[in-house]
């Protein structure tokens, strides 16, 4: 009896320890994946890109009942705000407003000045409008999924904008779905210009807070309220795309409030910018 009990416990604890050791080994392997950034390698990148559609369709089938109820609730809220928006638009009447006329005359002046200075024309680019099918902006690595892919002409590093300003860029592309990294992502780095003086800096994502700008040489000359736009350096984003406004000036960095409200996004634009550059050269 004693021998049986001893061997029973020996077997039980032996197998338990084996499971624990195997789990520890798998934790080490996973940590190695993170440390070596294995998903940046070309093999994993292509696996990741090609699996977006499959993963999305499987997940969306599973959560479709929850999504159905959520969509119903948001439609009700949308109809309520539609009436208020309509009243607001009637009051504003943009076409007859003074601000619209000022914008038009400013644009005409810019065209005239460019002609007088004999400036080269900026590269023109078209865009693809797409719907946001998944909003993962509240995670550390903020991203969205859009319902366009390779078959629609989407490619990696395509800039993403909303109606009010810059949002991010495309990082993974599958046949019909793509993933875009937002400017609030902790690994996002975008070259920007500040104010009319074009002070250069780097916009760094801060997860769910306002992004910040670092590495500004003329830091002391920047004031709160200055406009922030893309500088065009790096060749990924075209220049003069609105980003936001300086709202805070700390010891060594600037805080930017984005013009684009990521939470209320339903449709976005993908700028066909890089393609134009590659075609010209």
């Amino acid at each position: 009896m004693r021998t049986f009990r001893n061997s029973f416990f020996q077997n039980f604890f032996g197998s338990q320890l084996r499971i624990i050791i195997f789990t520890l080994i798998l934790i080490l392997v996973s940590s190695l994946f993170i440390v070596t950034k294995i998903d940046k390698s070309s093999i994993f990148k292509s696996i990741r890109s090609s699996s977006i559609s499959i993963v999305y369709y499987i997940s969306s089938v599973v959560v479709s009942p929850v999504k159905f109820v959520g969509d119903g609730v948001s439609k009700i809220i949308e109809i309520r705000s539609l009436y208020k928006d309509n009243e607001q638009y009637k009051k504003e009447r943009l076409i007859e407003s003074k601000s619209f006329q000022e914008l038009v005359s400013l644009k005409l002046k810019i065209v005239e000045y460019e002609r007088l200075l004999n400036l080269n024309e900026d590269l023109d680019y078209d865009f693809i409008t797409s719907r946001v099918i998944a909003d993962l902006s509240k995670k550390y690595f903020s991203s969205i999924l859009v319902d366009v892919g390779k078959k629609d002409g989407v490619f990696e590093n395509m800039p993403i904008t909303g109606p009010n300003g810059l949002l991010g860029k495309i990082t993974d592309v599958d046949q019909s779905i793509s993933r875009g990294m937002l400017v609030t992502d902790v690994s996002s780095r975008i070259a920007v210009s500040i104010s009319e003086e074009s002070f250069q800096g780097i916009l760094i994502g801060q997860n769910q807070r306002n992004p910040r700008i670092d590495f500004v040489k003329e830091f002391s000359q920047v004031i709160i309220g200055d406009l922030v736009t893309t500088s065009g350096k790096g060749g990924i984003f075209p220049s003069y795309i609105f980003v936001g406004q300086i709202v805070k000036k700390e010891k060594d960095y600037l805080e930017v409030e984005l013009f684009e409200d990521i939470d209320s996004l339903t449709h976005i634009r993908l700028l066909n910018f890089n393609n134009n550059i590659s075609n010209d050269f």
Binding site: F13, Q16, L17, I19, I20, T23, L24, L26, I27, V29, S30, S31, L32, F33, I34, K37, I38, D39, F44, R48, S51, I52, V55, Y56, S59, L136, K139, Y140, F141, S143, D172, R179
Partner: peptide, 29 residues
Amino acid sequence: YSDLVIGYPIGYSSVLFLFFLLLNQASNY
């Protein structure tokens, strides 16, 4: 699979899941 769904670096969710499995097995042990 979780990392592919939410767009995290590969290995992140695995570390978390396996850590809590380890706690589970340790509490059993």
